[in-house]
């Protein structure tokens, strides 16, 4: 099972203030039985904790991606020519995995799988024994669809914030309830068609 999917920034970009890492979209498919929160906390405490967890993942992906790009001797994404299309962008994306130990920040151990496309990060937070090869191909499929349907490669890049229903539609099909699917190209084709039909509405 995938615990959550998130889209976030990797570097400040032309708009950003210094080192802020913005979470643009996040979706947790289930909430873990949380540590018993002290009684008497404000009602939003649980939500606050979930949001902080997401932010921790985004920040760690950001530094993992920065280090990986540095090591590979890549230039900052701003100085790179934009990729020719979405498919190429996903193919050239940086990728990696790392483990979050129990309590850091989720109660149980998790594995984070990330893709870095220019200044955007796409991450899956997975259960420790997830099929990571399947997770990787699912993340690539999701990322490509996000780039396509949210027109993320070009300006104004606000669809990711304003068209949440599109991301929802995508996740409902390709990652229903956080379940990774063993979908062959014909299944994917059907899902694609269904998605295109729903987007066209």
């Amino acid at each position: 099972m995938v615990h959550s999917f998130l889209i976030h920034t990797l570097c400040p970009g032309s708009a950003g203030s210094a080192s802020v890492c913005r979470v643009l979209y996040s979706r947790a498919f289930y909430s873990e039985p949380l540590v018993q929160l002290p009684a008497g906390l404000v009602p939003g405490a649980e939500r606050l904790l979930q949001k902080e967890q997401v932010a921790v993942v985004a920040r760690q992906v950001k530094s993992a991606c920065t280090l990986s790009r540095q090591a590979a001797g890549k230039h900052s994404p701003e100085s790179c020519p934009p990729p020719s299309d979405e498919a190429a962008a996903v193919q050239e994306a940086d990728c990696g995995m790392f483990r979050l130990g129990a309590g850091e920040p989720f109660q149980g151990e998790k594995t984070v799988l990330w893709l870095g496309v220019l200044s955007l990060g796409f991450s899956l937070v997975c259960e420790p024994h997830e099929n990571l090869l399947l997770a990787e191909s699912s993340l690539r499929t999701l990322t490509q669809h996000c780039l396509d349907h949210l027109r993320l490669l070009g300006p104004p890049g606000t669809d990711v914030l304003l068209k949440a229903d599109r991301i929802e539609a995508l996740l409902d099909r390709f990652l229903p309830h956080g379940q990774l699917l063993f979908a062959n190209h014909r299944f994917i084709h059907s899902l694609d068609k269904e998605l295109a039909a729903s987007m066209a509405k």
């Binding site: 950003g16 913005r22 890049g157």
Partner: peptide, 14 residues
């Protein structure tokens, strides 16, 4: 990509 427009939307929402 992430632009000034997007940043400003987040700020407005907050």
């Amino acid at each position: 990509m992430f632009t000034a427009g997007a940043e400003s939307l987040i700020k407005q929402a907050r």
